[in-house]
Design a protein around this nucleic acid. Sequence first.
DNA 1: TCTTTAGACGAACAACTGTTCGAAACCCTG
DNA 2: CAGGGTTTCGAACAGTTGTTCGTCTAAAGA
Lengths: 232, 232
Amino acid sequence: MTQPDPSLDLTDQDLSLDDEAHLTQAGCAATRDLVFVAAERLFAVHGFQKVSVRDITAEAKVNLASINYHFGSKDALLLEIFTRRTAELNRARAKMLHEANAAHAGKPPVRAVLHALIAPPVRWMDPKGERLISVQFLIRARSEGTDQMRDILRTDVSHLRRFSDALLVACPQLSEEEVYWRLHFSLGLIHNNRFAEFDRLNTLSGGITREDEVDLLIQRMVDFAEAGFLRA
Amino acid sequence: MTQPDPSLDLTDQDLSLDDEAHLTQAGCAATRDLVFVAAERLFAVHGFQKVSVRDITAEAKVNLASINYHFGSKDALLLEIFTRRTAELNRARAKMLHEANAAHAGKPPVRAVLHALIAPPVRWMDPKGERLISVQFLIRARSEGTDQMRDILRTDVSHLRRFSDALLVACPQLSEEEVYWRLHFSLGLIHNNRFAEFDRLNTLSGGITREDEVDLLIQRMVDFAEAGFLRA
DNA sequence: TCTTTAGACGAACAACTGTTCGAAACCCTG
DNA sequence: CAGGGTTTCGAACAGTTGTTCGTCTAAAGA
């Protein structure tokens, strides 16, 4: 078990890869990257089905046929954004879990495992950073994605299995079933952080909940999930 | 505060209303109901944008023009399904919170409030019941809904405010900000229960996690959320 | 200098979208 | 039976969708 998936997962040797190394390569056309970033932004904000290829090419200021030329189809473009961002996120998570394993002699406590799971995507949610778009895209992919994308999410559990295995070790007092459920709940905390949900929370609280303090938000989420896991 | 919204919320007098009283009224055309249930099912399974009016009318075995005749437009049909189901869900939650207030002299503990928030939608998720479609529809509306629907979700916080007020009373040791955040996290547990997420969980766990035991699932979720709230 | 080729460009394609219209069919009341 | 209001039906509308085609440009290679 825990065999790495060659497409979306990675071995520990890959941890030092530069995520944006493919961009602005010498001789590489800029059109492809323009389409990529424009499509990711529009998809993340408006949804996959509501954005047409004309919207994307207009935003990127490129020709209409560019998408089919560089990516093959609109769905293929969508899939490439999804796979790239998913791989980046998985890599960041795997790196943190790797460090937690190293720091705790291969048996990290629940809190460290949850932190490795939660911190990377929530760090991306920093409004001051440029990755907010990417994480909103990934959250949206979970419900609006193509059948192909959802098949990937469903079948590629090798990445998630590292965390469930670590949690099973860290929580020997819990039944296996219980650990999987609580992991499912913990993932729910992350996936609920859409723009609209933050809006609703701000409306409800009168604006006292600041989602831009990402480190504090991470701490809150890990606190909440850890309490749920440590419960007898 | 906590003033009831006439459209989606309800006063305590309405608690005995029959949700399906409008269906199969004497003389009422069956076509409208056929369209309603077919559209709800297709929207819940495939998403709002991927389902065309021709898909709906074909599923309902009615004429193509029926949707515009009975509902005005596709968006209006979508909005009617959304408002009706939201009102039904809010009503069930309000009833449970009302009962919790009565049982605890107006100061229900955290667990009772969370149970009133979580139990109704999760009860709907029973695969043996016929409301699974409705709750999947509502979950989908959260990310794929029209601007109008999301405006309703964002502005109509009067329903949710009952629960945040109750939680503020039940958790005097927590700061106001902290209560709102933990309520947000608790809602995330519910909204993460999509078909695809259950599929992924089943794949990960090897099928030992049974989401059809709704009472047990409710207990698990309330346990998890309560632990997060009771944390110091 | 000639040839090759990757890319950009405008135009068009066929399919599908939500919606509208007038006529036909229906049903209940008088 | 005759009436009018309601609902259904088939057909068509105009607009948008993703995709494809042939042509043009320009830079690299021989």
